[in-house]
Amino acid sequence: MAGRLVKSIGALIGLGVIGAGVFLVVTRPQPLPDEYWATAGTPDVKNGELVFSMGGCVSCHKKPGAEGADALVLAGGVTIDSPYGKFHVPNISPDEKAGIGNWTLAQFGNAVTRGVGPDGSHLYPSLPYGSYSRMTPKDVGDLFAYIKTLPKSDNVAPPHELGFPYNMRLALGGWKWLYFSDAPRVELANADATVKRGQYIVEGPGHCGECHTPRDELGGFKAGQWLSGAPNPEGKGKIPDITPGGSVASWSEGDIANYLETGFTPEYDTAGGTMVEVQKNMAKLPKEDREAIAAYLKVIPKL
C-alpha cells in the first residue's frame, strides 16, 4: 500500500514537472530573428514620422503636460491606471542610458511587435504590441529611425506598481498564449486597396481596438466584440461602439474622415477625453489614410 502511494506521488510530481516544462516552452518569449528585421531596408525618416503620428507615440511617451516641441522629448513618466495596478510609461528617447539609444532595430522591433524586451523578458501589454504585431518591418524600421532624430532625455520612469500575481512577468507568457496574435481582427473578402489600408492602420499601428474593444477579466479582448465599445479607462462614461451598428452608424465615410481631421462631429460636437490626443495625431495623416480608416469602419461586421 505504502509503495503504491509513493509511486502515485512520484507520478504526480513527474507529471507536474513535465507540465511546468511544457508551459515554460509554450509561453517563452518568442522574438523574431535579426534576419527578419533586416528586411526593413533603408530607413525612410519621413515615413517614420507618419507612423509615429499614426501610432500616437507622443501621447503616452511625452513628459506629462508637455506641449509643442517639448512633446517630442519622449521622456516617459505618464502613469496609466488599470485594474491591475499602475503602469509607468518608459523613456523611449534616443538617450543611450535612460532611453533606447543603444537598442538595435531587432530589439526595438521585438519590443514593439512581440512584447519582448532587450533582455529577453516579456513586456506588459500596456505597450499595445498586440496591435503593433501587424506592423510591417518597413514601418517599424522607419519609426525607429525617426525616433532616433528626436531629442534625448535622461529621465528614468519609476517601475510599474503591480500587485501579485500581476507583478510576475513569467505569467505574461500565459497571457500571450491566450490572446496574442498577428492575424487580422476581421476577415474581409474582396476588400479593395483603400479598405486594406484602413484595416492595417486601425488594427495595427493605430491600435484603435485597445480602447474601443471590451476586455475580459484577464485583460484580453472579448471574442466577437471588435470595436463594439468599452468602459472608459479614465473612469467616466464609455468608449463608443464604432462598428456600423454603433454610435457612428449614421455617419458617412466623409463624416468619419472629417472628424479625424477636424475633431468635429456631424452634429458639430467636438472630440473629448483621450480622443482629443488621438484626433490630433490622425489630423497629421494624409487625407487618403483618414479616408481609408473610414472605409474600413464602414465594412466591418455590425454588432
Rank of each mutant, 00 (worst) to 15 (best):
A2Y: 10
S8T: 12
I9C: 06
I9M: 11
L15N: 10
A20R: 08
V22Q: 07
F23V: 12
P29W: 10
D34G: 02
D34R: 10
E35V: 04
T39E: 13
A40T: 06
P43Y: 08
D44R: 04
N47M: 07
S53E: 09
G56N: 12
H61V: 06
H61I: 05
G65H: 07
L72T: 01
L74Q: 04
A75N: 13
A75K: 10
G76W: 14
V78E: 15
D81R: 11
D81E: 15
S82W: 14
P83I: 08
P83L: 12
P90D: 05
I100A: 03
N102Y: 01
T104D: 14
F108Q: 06
N110C: 04
R114E: 14
R114N: 12
R114Q: 15
R114D: 12
G117Y: 14
G117L: 14
P118D: 10
P118H: 09
D119G: 14
P125T: 03
S126E: 12
S126C: 12
S131W: 12
T136I: 07
P137I: 09
V140N: 01
V140M: 03
L143H: 00
L143R: 00
L143W: 01
F144C: 06
T149W: 13
N155W: 13
V156Y: 06
P165W: 09
N167P: 06
M168D: 12
R169E: 15
L170Y: 14
G173L: 06
G173K: 03
G174Y: 13
K176H: 10
W177C: 04
Y179C: 04
D182Y: 04
D182H: 09
D182F: 05
P184D: 14
R185Q: 11
V186R: 00
E187R: 07
N190K: 09
N190E: 10
A191W: 00
A191V: 00
D192S: 08
A193F: 04
A193N: 10
T194H: 03
Q199L: 08
I201Q: 00
E203M: 03
G204L: 14
G204E: 13
P205C: 15
H207G: 03
H207F: 13
T213K: 11
P214I: 02
G219A: 04
G219P: 07
K222T: 06
G224C: 05
G224D: 15
Q225V: 00
L227A: 01
G229H: 08
A230K: 01
P231Q: 03
E234G: 05
G237V: 03
K238Y: 11
I242P: 02
W251V: 01
S252G: 07
S252A: 04
I256W: 02
L260Q: 05
T262I: 09
G263L: 10
T274F: 15
A283K: 11
K284S: 11
P286C: 05
D289Q: 15
A295E: 01
Y296L: 02
L297T: 06
V299K: 01
I300D: 00
K302N: 06
L303T: 13
